[in-house]
Structure formats: C-alpha cells, structure tokens
C-alpha cells in the first residue's frame, strides 16, 4: 500500500512541469531580459527608456483608468444579475446561458464587433442618420476623441467580460445555504439588510476571487483596445507589443511586462488584505 502515496504526486507532475516550462521559465526570462543591458550586464536602462517614452505615461494612465472604471462596473452588474437570477425559478437556465454567451467570444472578435458599431460607416452612424439625429457620418474613434475610444473600450469590455464575474458570483451564491437568509428574515431584516448583513459578507470569498481575476485581466487589456483605438489609446500591454514588434526591442517590452506584473501583484495583495473574510481571520 505504500506505493499508493506517490500516485497523486505522479498524477500532478505533468501539469506542474507544463506550468514550470511555459509560465515560470518565461517569467524568469522576462524578468532577466528587463534588467539586462545590450552588453550583458545588470542595468535599469530598459526601465529608464520605458519611462522616458512619450507613450508611457498615457499607457499607464489609461490602463489604470480602464481598470478602475471597468472592474467595479462589472462587479456591480454581475452581482445584480446573479441576485436577480437567484429569485427566478422558471427559465433560470435560459437566463444563465444567455448571460454567459460572451464567455465564448475571444477578445479580438469582441473588439471587431464593437468596431463594426462605432466605425465611420458602422451601425451607430447608420442608426443615428436613419433617425435623423446627424446628417454626416461622425468619426467616433479618432486620435482627436480619446474619450470616445475610452468609452467604446469600456463598453466592449463590460459586454465581453462581465460574464466571468457573473459565473463566479452565481457559484458563490449557490454555496450560501438559504437558511441564513431565512434566519435574517425571521429576525426582522429587510431585503436590503439581508443583502448587506448576510449575503454580501458570506459572498466575500467569491467576490475576492472575481475581483482578483478581473483586475489582473483588465490590467492586461490589449486586443479590444488595439482594434478600437490602435495606439490612439495607449495601454501597457499594447506598448509591450509595439516595443517588441515594431521597435524590435525585447528589453523595453519586457520592462512593460514587468510593470504589469508588479501592478497585478500589488492589486492582488490589496484585495487579499482588504477583503479578508472575518471568520477565517481569527481562526
């Protein structure tokens, strides 16, 4: 029977090797790349070049702005949708599936869908012309209208990626026994109090997971932005791409990647600290 103890380790070994090979190793390589000069010695040259670049401040600003706008919007919407779904009995599955359709669409495709709406001869202009609000097609997504590009990206991201938050929260809500809500109801809590005092605190672990996941993905936002705005709305992941491809400079591209990683780590630690659920906090 002794040999059976090794079986679990043998079974997880392939996935561990896979992750080490394709995630951990490239990660270390990227870190090394970012702090190595062209001569081979240690240097902060790449970070200095990145920081001095014209696009860097805008890329940092827009990435953080997009995250700060998109993530809360998605969490609030997903929470509302998940709670609504909880009070539906008939046709619940239909709503669940319709709301999770965007999960199956790649971010590039999502960007193209929204481009088809906002482009010069797109659906939005046709519609506005059709009802007579505008005479000429409007140019929504040009370098002169970064606000409009920003709004379009927010719309596309909310449309595309709210479903993942929704799925996590639905699963989390299902884990909460209904007796807690019933007990609160019997002891005098209004629906709002039940949500604030019972459902929300018990949902904290799921909210934490959803926030961490969505924030990390939002900091990496790329395809949707490139499709809708090109470089008119610079973001960190986009800059990494341009430095690697267009400027053929992997060192600075790696520096951007490290910046994204650093912000992700800080955000994750913040969530873990701020949203610590109280019952394990003292255990």
């Amino acid at each position: 029977m002794r040999s059976e103890r090794y079986i679990p380790y043998v079974l997880i070994l392939p996935s561990v090797l896979f992750l080490l090979l394709l995630f951990a190793w490239p990660l270390v390589e990227a870190l090394l790349l970012s702090v190595r000069g062209s001569g081979g010695g240690w240097t902060l040259e790449n970070f200095q070049r990145m920081a001095a670049d014209l696009y860097f401040r805008d890329a940092l600003k827009y990435t953080l702005l997009l995250t700060v706008v998109i993530v809360p919007l998605q969490v609030v919407m997903a929470l509302g949708m998940a709670l609504l779904l909880g009070s539906i009995s008939k046709g619940r599955d239909l709503f669940l599936y319709v709301w999770t359709i965007p999960l199956g669409i790649s971010d590039l495709a999502a960007g193209i869908v929204w481009l088809a709406i906002f482009t010069e001869r797109g659906y939005l202009n046709s519609f506005l012309q059709g009802i007579g609000v505008i005479q000429q097609p409007q140019l929504w997504l040009s370098y002169e209208t970064p606000m409009m590009i920003f709004v379009a990206v927010v719309a596309a991201e909310v449309w595309r990626a709210t479903a993942i938050v929704f799925v996590i929260l639905v699963a989390g809500l299902q884990l909460i026994p209904k007796e807690y809500s019933e007990a609160a109801e019997v002891f005098g809590a209004t629906p709002w109090q039940r949500f604030r005092k019972v459902t929300l605190p018990l949902l904290m672990p799921s909210l934490q997971v959803a926030l961490i996941l969505r924030t990390i993905l939002a900091l990496e936002v790329f395809a949707v932005v490139v499709v809708l705005g090109g470089r008119n709305l610079p973001v960190l992941a986009g800059e990494a791409y341009f430095w690697y491809n267009t400027y053929q400079n992997p060192g600075v591209a790696a520096a951007y990647a490290v910046i994204i990683l650093g912000i992700s780590v800080v955000a994750t630690l913040l969530y873990l600290r701020l949203l610590r659920s109280r019952q394990d906090g003292v255990a």
């Binding site: 007796e179 209004t190 605190p201 659920s277």
Partner: peptide, 28 residues
C-alpha cells in the same frame, strides 16, 4: 416574516458564520 414578531430556531442552527456569538445573539 419580519413583521410577524416571531423567532425561530432552525434545524441546522443557521448561526451566521461571519458574526461573533455576541453579534449573532444581537442580530434580532
């Protein structure tokens, strides 16, 4: 239920896990 002036003890207790014993008793 909240307007009925009742109290209830549930089969699986339904004691709120995120609240201390004091806050549980104080809930109502």
């Amino acid at each position: 239920p909240r307007a009925r002036k009742i109290a209830m003890v549930f089969q699986n207790y339904a004691v709120f896990p995120h609240l201390t014993v004091f806050e549980n008793i104080a809930f109502g």
